[in-house]
Design a protein around this nucleic acid. Structure first.
Lengths: 211, 211
DNA sequence: ATTCGTCACGCGATATATCGCGTCGTTGCA
DNA sequence: TGCAACGACGCGATATATCGCGTGACGAAT
């Protein structure tokens, strides 16, 4: 969705530049980058480690394990590569700084959206639940008898359904309680409806011939 | 700063309960917990893995490596421990849900603060002047039908209702499974009906004006 | 009974590594 | 010359593990 902060090959060069200052381990490089660009952009581990592995494979850095850390050190070949392309570094820094600024603007917009969606939390949950309830295919007019295995699976599935339902409503009610009030009428309604559901489900269990 | 979501020993038991449903690997448990508590609370890896290691050490779970995943499976000793303390689980769920709720409110407040401070420069001066002029006569004599205490009691009552319903249906289904079959249609019906109930209850919560 | 120590525990921070998606460049062929 | 296939790359998500701080529970000592 959002464009990459580092363009093709830029990160590679930038890591090399950081390792020229002094040997560092992977996590240290992540922190260094995060600090360099105002904390707004933190490169993920999935960005750094593959690049370091590649650099090692190319012989531009060496890797040595120290306890649970992996320290990377630049080689002569690495320094040569850096010298050959040092003029690119300034441009990279400019580009990255611009990218980060654009990113920060995006974040601010997203926070605004998040606030809106937080306010709509309850309403949207209600709508979603209603939609899920409406979507009832109810087909499968098959005369298929239920096997033993299916029965066990059904009981287990029912457990999960019950659990999820309970958990959801629990959260719903607490959310509401914290931003307003939960009337006793709601609980009365819940009780009545659940009793009805139980009766209906039991009916389907009894009505089905056990043969 | 913020208090832990899980009290002493609670996480241990909760993990055991999750593993009773089916074997899972560490990351899966993190996701399961995150989902169960509305995505607001995501336990960190540093919370889960030490606990799993301890559980294995105690012989309550077994660990088996599958590719790059580590699958944990509950043992008989684990099930025994769980049976002995199953009554604690509901309380834990209550506590955790409350903690998460408080956490979410905190986050919301913090975001609000951040947004406010962003907008503050222009708006706050005007708003403050207006507030100073009005001076808030503190009327607010609303004949609110539901008091705070009633609301809390309602939530608690709802918990009990939900619990009882779940327990009853669990028993119903198992009884039926022992003397015959439980069809998947019953489960489908249950799911749909529960979704409907949730939607209806949520509707009563949303329709009621908070002030 | 109180307090004092310590031990377990929750958890964020630290640390590493892989997978898969989407995109950008390059290369080679039509 | 145009473009299409391919590979390299950035990066979020997936996955695991340890360290150290602060707190809370619990027993021992007073």
């Amino acid at each position: 969705m959002t464009p990459p902060v580092f363009a093709h090959g830029s990160l590679r060069l930038y890591l090399l530049a950081l390792l020229e200052e002094r040997p560092r381990h992977g996590y240290e490089l992540i922190q260094a980058l995060s600090e360099q660009f105002g904390g707004t952009y933190s490169p993920s581990a999935g960005t750094i480690y593959p690049r370091l592995a590649k650099l090692e494979e190319e012989g531009l850095v060496t890797k040595s394990t120290d306890g649970r850390k992996s320290v990377y050190e630049i080689t002569d070949a690495g320094r040569a590569e850096l010298d050959a392309r040092r003029h690119e570094l300034d441009e990279i820094e400019n580009d990255v700084t611009d990218s980060v600024r654009r990113l920060a603007d995006g974040v601010r917009a997203e926070v605004n959206d998040a606030m809106r969606s937080l306010r709509a939390e309850l309403a949207s949950a209600a709508r979603e639940a209603k939609r899920a309830a409406t979507r009832m295919p109810a087909g499968s007019a098959g005369a298929s008898s239920t096997s033993h295995a299916d029965s066990s699976r059904a009981v287990h599935e029912a457990d999960l359904v019950l659990n999820e339902f309970r958990q959801q409503l629990r959260t719903d009610l607490r959310t509401r309680a914290h931003q307003g009030r939960v009337s006793t009428e709601s609980v009365t309604l819940l009780k009545a409806r659940l009793a009805q559901v139980r009766a209906d489900v039991l009916a389907t269990l009894v009505d089905t011939p056990p043969n």
